[in-house]
Amino acid sequence: MKRRFANIYLIIVFAILYAPIIFLIAYSFSQGDTMTNFHGFTWRHYQTLFSDTRMLAIVANTLLIALLSALIATLIGTLGALSITRTTKRVTRESLLTLNNVLMVSPDVIIGASFLIFFTMLKIPLGFSTVLMSHIAFEIPIVVLMVLPRLREMSASLLDAAQDLGATTRQLLTHVIIPFISPGIFAGFFMALTYSLDDFAVTFFVTGNGFSTLSVEIYSRARQGINLEINALSGVMFLFSLLLVGGYYWIQQASQKRRQRKREVVS
């Protein structure tokens, strides 16, 4: 009985979470031009989407910014987390962490405006590079926060054991620490990726000179009412993220099986 109640609860929660997305995608097939009534099936909105080269260029830009900034932010953030845990003086460590957290909680608008002032003061023309830099900057604290708990979980005796067995510092990092914290690194990377994909406030301030991202474009279409081309785009993006999650799952399954087989061979 209890089990069944739990299942029903789960189904309701997921239905509520996914309903708006499904609703949105369903309307991308509607023959009408708005989301008030469904008017029969058509691929028309997908056709307009794929012939809209400006929109496709913006999609490519957005994905490029997201992947590249998440990658760089993950590298820097992981190194940052490593050095924060290595700091032995408590005061320094705590203040480093606090500085990191202040960036996490300060509003995007403030960060965006300050970046705009900063870049224009340095006379850096707004565009791809400024968007990339600011995205990296606001993603680093997220990565640090995702990696830190894994580092804290790691027991010191693990490192001692490795060193006793003759591991050099380099081997310690590549063979012990990084494999151990890699779930945190992955989580950080994906969080950074999603933050970058849907950031509007910061991006708006630092775009310019013909460079734009999806969130900025969609927001500025709102004055006219968003047309169903955006729905079609959402459909494509949703499919894309499904594939991404599926791919990640498949890789994990495969590597787990490989590891299991190895273990069997050893034993």
């Binding site: 400006r54 705009l116 002032i117 870049f119 224009t120 006379k123 850096i124 023309p125 707004l126 400024t130 708006f204 301030f205 775009t207 310019g208 000179n209 013909g210 734009s212 900025v216 474009e217 927001y219 500025s220 279409r221 709102a222 004055r223």
Partner: peptide
């Protein structure tokens, strides 16, 4: 074409410079 969503946002971007 680059787009904005309010007069005020456009004003800020142009006033701050860095765009052409």
């Amino acid at each position: 074409v680059e787009t904005f969503d309010s007069n005020e946002a456009m004003y800020t971007k142009i006033k701050q410079g860095g765009t052409h």
